[in-house]
Every structure is written in structure tokens, then in C-alpha cells.
Write a protein that binds this DNA or RNA. Structure first.
Length: 378
DNA sequence: TCCTCTAACACTTTTGAATCGC
DNA sequence: AGCGATTCAAAAGTGTTAGAGG
């Protein structure tokens, strides 16, 4: 792990020099598909727009898997984990700590729409979380992942061996994350370099890259253009080359901000270490966040049964089986956490006695994602 | 005054129903 | 009738920016 200078952590998470964009955990190996693009953003401090109605990520999460059992079913999920307990602000061309983080919004988990599918399906091609949306609306009813603006997060991927999202074997969960996917949630872009990079790479932003619409055209609307020809389904290359961008230099700050900054960096380092575990090999620069489950056998009668309780709007460890006290938890530490059922769609099951006494039928992934699956301390 | 958030905007891309040809 | 390819309109998604609100 390289040293972390002020200017580096002020803008983005540290990134090792040589990067292999995959991590093997047990037999399962996960690779971040568009890692180069992520790195391009990471170097200048990735920002993700969040809106009331939900905004897609760009770059979006795209991963590939290997080492799965070809005929076993898996559910793939992703959630967002706070990097630290601070709120940030963009000031003088750089990010500064702006105080303590807001209380965590409701925890949401996004399940890949192909879930559940057999290992052979997941390994056949990379999977994209393109339709994952981020929102700052804590009352969101669409299942989007709720984040706080001006806070930092990273996506965390879960590979769960299960026949369906509702018959999850809670012992067979593996979790992965990638350092370069850390981002700051914002309601409007702060760093103009990020804006430029997004416009350069995001096809939806072409209207702003070409033709010079902007504020002028805003007042000179001239009607819709003819519909575009149907594009190829897989045409986009989101991993295209990006210009080498430099970190913004650190400038002088008020003394208090300096202290906050130092505290933030310390916290950031700490959470970074815990979130992505310890580097085992200097060449293995991507870290995973393995769930420490090997000492805890959740098979059969020890499977946790999702209780028929109302939806918990905030992250909680209420249903977790903790091998340690919650006070020992690092902010980024994973806690296994079964999904409580949605209030209106719960059904009782009569078979599958090996896993759950109750089965919860959800109409779609949006329903599912509204309920916390993996919580983390807050 | 400063900071954050929202909505409207022009434009591109994606989606899905309708149509056509075999 | 069934299937796949094509067309086209509508919906979805993009960053910008003025203005509102705390």
C-alpha cells in the first residue's frame, strides 16, 4: 500500500501502483470489468449524482465471476457502504471534511436482475449493474439505494449461493469490493474534471459535448430531433482510454479543517484496511472483504429465520448473529443480516424446511431491494 | 452570503410495440 | 400461425444552470 499524502486522500482513495482488477476469495474470483474507467475517475475523486427520483451510476458497476459451481444457483447483490463517518464539502477546488456524517439512511440492497441463476450463467459473461439507481430520497418507494449527499461510499458485491433470494443459505455468502469504486455522492457535480470525464465517456451526455447547448440553448428550444437509429445492443465501450488526469493540489486550509482532515484520513485508512482486508501480496492490489463465517455454521437448523417484523427503516444489527460485540465493529465491517419480509407480501411456505420456516414472495427486485440484507454498523 | 438541492432544459440512447417478410 | 428482423415513437437518461431554500 503506498503512502497516503494529504492531497491524495483529500481527493480520492489511495490506489496502488500496479493493479490487478480481480480478487479471489476461496474458489470464487471476482473481477471489476471496467476498472480502467473507474480508475480514471478515482484519480480525481469519483462523484456520483444522486437525485430524488434516482440516478444511474457512471461508471456503473460491471463485474465478472469465476470459480462458481456451474450448476449451483447464486444470487448476486450489491449495496453501498459508507467509507467513513464524515460529511464532505467541495471548497477551493478540493474536498474537505465538513463535519460528522448524517445518520445513515435506510439500507437498501440491489439484486442483479438475473438472480437467481446458476453459476454457469454468471460465469458465461460479465454482469452489469447498469440499472442500479442512487437516490437521496429517504422515502423512496422504488427500491433505489438511498445515500446522503456529500458522503463517501463504495459498492460491495455479495455472491450468495441460493436457489432463490428467499431461500438464501446464509452460510454461503462471499463479499467483494474494489478500492477504485469509492465515490462521493453529490446532488450536483463539484469537480469540473469529473464533469469533463463523464461527458467524454457517457453517451447520454453527448448532447452537452456536441452542439453547445448549455445555457444558450436552454432559452432557444427548437424542438426534438428525429429519432435516432436503433443502436447496437452491446455497442458501448465504457473502458475506453481516458486522459491522464492529475490530482488537485492541496492548498492551505484553516487549522480546524486540517485537524478534521487528519482525523478523516486516519479514519479513512482504518476503514480502508478493514473494508478491503489486508494485502496478502503486493501485486494483489484489489482487496476483498470476506465475511468471517467459517467458524459459524448456518446450515440447516441453524439457518436464521427472517422474523415477521415490520421493515426496519434504519440499519440495525437486531437480527444479526454476531461473533463479536457490536462495539468492536469497524464502520465498514460486514454483519450478516437476513432480510425481514415486506409488510404486505409475506407468505408462509410449507416446504424447503432446510432453510427457512417462512418464505417471502416478492413481486420484483424492487420490492426485495427495499429491505436491508447486509447491514453495517452506524 | 454561502451552500445544497431541485426542476426545467436540449439532446442522445434505450425500449418496446407495431409492422413486414419469410 | 410463428418467428426474426426492422422501424419508429415514446420513455429514459445525461449534465447544465437558474433559482429556491435553509
Amino acid at each position: 500500500m503506498p503512502n497516503i499524502s494529504d492531497s491524495q486522500t483529500n481527493v480520492s482513495m489511495p490506489l496502488p501502483q500496479s493493479v490487478s482488477h480481480s480478487y479471489q476469495q476461496g474458489c470464487i474470483r471476482m473481477t471489476l470489468e471496467n476498472a480502467e474507467l473507474w480508475e480514471s475517475f478515482h484519480r480525481i475523486g469519483t462523484e456520483m449524482i444522486i437525485t430524488k427520483h434516482g440516478r444511474r451510476m457512471f461508471p456503473h458497476c460491471s463485474i465478472s465471476l469465476s470459480g462458481l459451481q456451474p450448476f449451483a444457483s447464486y444470487v448476486i447483490m450489491v449495496d453501498m457502504v459508507p467509507v467513513d463517518s464524515f460529511k464532505y464539502k467541495w471548497k477551493r477546488e478540493q474536498w474537505e471534511v465538513a463535519g460528522k456524517a448524517e445518520p445513515q439512511p435506510p439500507c437498501r440492497t440491489y439484486m442483479h436482475p438475473d438472480s437467481p441463476a446458476v453459476g454457469g450463467h454468471w460465469m458465461k459473461q460479465s454482469m452489469s449493474f447498469l440499472k442500479l439507481k442512487l437516490t437521496n430520497n429517504t422515502l423512496d418507494q422504488h427500491g433505489h439505494i438511498i445515500l446522503h449527499s456529500m458522503h463517501r461510499y463504495y459498492p460491495r458485491f455479495h455472491v450468495i449461493q441460493a436457489d432463490s433470494p428467499y431461500t438464501v443459505r446464509w452460510g454461503s455468502v462471499q463479499t467483494f469490493s474494489f478500492p477504485e469504486t469509492v465515490f462521493t455522492a453529490v446532488t450536483a457535480y463539484q469537480n469540473p474534471k469529473i464533469t469533463k470525464l463523464k461527458i467524454d465517456h457517457n453517451p447520454f451526455a453527448k448532447g452537452f459535448r456536441e452542439g453547445g447547448t448549455h445555457s444558450h440553448s436552454k432559452r432557444c428550444r427548437s424542438g426534438k430531433s428525429p429519432p435516432a437509429k436503433r443502436p447496437t445492443e452491446d455497442g458501448r465501450d465504457l473502458c475506453s482510454h481516458s486522459p491522464g488526469l492529475q490530482r488537485m493540489p492541496s492548498t492551505s486550509r484553516p487549522a480546524q479543517a486540517e485537524r478534521d482532515q487528519a482525523f478523516s484520513q486516519q479514519s479513512l485508512r482504518r476503514s480502508h484496511l478493514s473494508a478491503w482486508a489486508l494485502e496478502q501480496d503486493s501485486s494483489e492490489s484489489i482487496h476483498a472483504e470476506p465475511l468471517e463465517l467459517r467458524d459459524y455454521d448456518y446450515s440447516y437448523e441453524e439457518q436464521m429465520v427472517p422474523a415477521s417484523v415490520a421493515y426496519q427503516p434504519y440499519r440495525s444489527v437486531e437480527y444479526a448473529r454476531l461473533p463479536f460485540s457490536s462495539s468492536e465493529l469497524d464502520p465498514a465491517q460486514t454483519i450478516l443480516h437476513p432480510p425481514p419480509p415486506p409488510p404486505s407480501t409475506t407468505k408462509l411456505g410449507t416446504h424447503q424446511q432446510g432453510y427457512h420456516q417462512h418464505h417471502h414472495q416478492h413481486s420484483n427486485t424492487s420490492d426485495w431491494s427495499q429491505y436491508p440484507l447486509f447491514s453495517y454498523s452506524c
